[in-house]
Design a protein around this nucleic acid. Sequence first.
DNA 1: TTGAAAGCGCTAACAT
DNA 2: ATGTTAGCGCTTTCAA
Lengths: 335, 335
Amino acid sequence: MDKQAITIYDVARQAEVSMATVSRVVNGNPNVKPSTRKKVLEVIEKLDYRPNAVARGLASKKTTTIGVIIPDISNAFFSSLALGIDDIATMYKYNISLANSDGDAQKELTVFNTLLAKQMDGIIFMGRRITDEMLEGFSRTYIPIVLAGTIDPKGEIPSVNIDYRSASKDAISLLVSHGNEKIAFVSGALIDPINKQRMNGYEDVFLENRHLSYSEGLVFETNYSFEKGKELAKHVKNAGTTACYVTDDELAIGLMDGLLDLGVAIPEEIEIITSNNSALTEFVRPRISSITQPLYDLGAVAMRLLTKLMNKEEVEERNVILPYDIEEKGSTRKV
Amino acid sequence: MDKQAITIYDVARQAEVSMATVSRVVNGNPNVKPSTRKKVLEVIEKLDYRPNAVARGLASKKTTTIGVIIPDISNAFFSSLALGIDDIATMYKYNISLANSDGDAQKELTVFNTLLAKQMDGIIFMGRRITDEMLEGFSRTYIPIVLAGTIDPKGEIPSVNIDYRSASKDAISLLVSHGNEKIAFVSGALIDPINKQRMNGYEDVFLENRHLSYSEGLVFETNYSFEKGKELAKHVKNAGTTACYVTDDELAIGLMDGLLDLGVAIPEEIEIITSNNSALTEFVRPRISSITQPLYDLGAVAMRLLTKLMNKEEVEERNVILPYDIEEKGSTRKV
DNA sequence: TTGAAAGCGCTAACAT
DNA sequence: ATGTTAGCGCTTTCAA
């Protein structure tokens, strides 16, 4: 027996008005005489009536719910974005349907489709890589989609990011300015567009500093995890590098931990700079220097952009680039 | 113009069958002749028909969506639970509506109500404290609710937890067995039921070890954050304690960092043991010893319990207690 | 300012 | 095995 037995019809009957009037009251439509509004409100109160959002969604074709596809909710980077998304969504009275994709292409597609079936008003997609199938799925629907902290190589989907290429270039240039000549590039999958951009930034540095020579032996591709970083430590050390740019914080922390185990002094012998400046970078000793991305804002702005798209407002820029900075902490030398 | 213009009716017409038959095919009802099933499937494919889950929800009174209320999505403890919830939810074909509450009582109430309005089939609640209003809200609805990693002092709401009292007692007893006599209890809000239980465990230790005397000066109440832990370091040191039990990992890491800054050797001079064994405890040097809670399982089991409740299956135990353990790492001494 | 009535797209008896 | 027919609870013209 559902307690949710009271419908708009019950309220209408008891208040001796039509369903339409109740609907108007509930939706704050001004075209209601104050006295009848009052009467309706009283009955609503008395009956403890709660509008059924599903019925409303069917009738109005709006669910006031947006879908969020996230690779890993327990990952500090993405959950920070999610927090920003949630805050702004709440501000604009939207709810969030959250779906973890494990970064699995098949699962992304599946959850995307169920999100569509559930009539989301919009979708925010986060992922390290976007498959062509996914892109095609995006283009086959008319509901607005925004990428947060996620790159569409074709630049067709509205998105919010920082300039990863320029950021990594700056980070690495900083290391160059410290006199480092053998700088390692420690990254997650190089096929990921975001890492491709970072790699471009790495290469840019060589173009500007002709005395440096690019060496494949200084590029390390692995997975985003503490353990992988730790495993990599000896290879990084053996490569004779004196500084590393790392594309993920956990990876960077693992790398540093491994290097410390090998007796390497950080930052005296090897400098490290990472990419996300998540809280983790503040928890370790020494603190890890990092590119600072406005993680929360990346999510918040993406959500704000989505609201505009959902309202069919004009948006001046569909591919938003947020500013970054570099925070020098304990894992890089003071000069 | 919605691309989602094709309805079950369109399919029915083109396939020259009734809506009911299409519905049967879509829902895998076996009472359909293979040949007509095939025909319907073809039309579905051709038209790229996707069932509207909102309409289905209205008609069937099931949304196959569950609500999840979480204090902070970017907190390692809760997001680990969320991951477990999501995995099992996906396994049982449920979607998740996620709502961040900031641990704010008012917001919890608000999101709970919108979740009800959106006709969730069930709700998983996580929070550090449950207000009476919230409890009353829970009791006013018939949809199943499960608490994950969250304590209802009255024990009325189905829940999944570990035995926090016993766990903290064990952790502290370990510190006693190392010869410590002044053991600090460093906690978040003592009013939170979970911390009350831990406090009880702390007190239990004194009952069993008459040579120890309880002192208020050894109980530190603060907020869950790295900074607060760091601030607390000097007070903890000045209190002359030689060991601390901490109820939160970030707090513990902050405390350790602060103590290290003060030149205190960990674990030689002060031992630390924390409560959640999140990945963070592995990132710092020394590694932090911890009670190990099955975080993922806490969420997974809660979700599994919820599915049973939603299916009106008999459940033997509505208040599930999962096992814990203690992992001795670098912040406690080997004996 | 209010009401009547036609859907929204689907499910679920009930027939056949 | 298939079709008919009511709804599900609400919004939204269109009239009045």
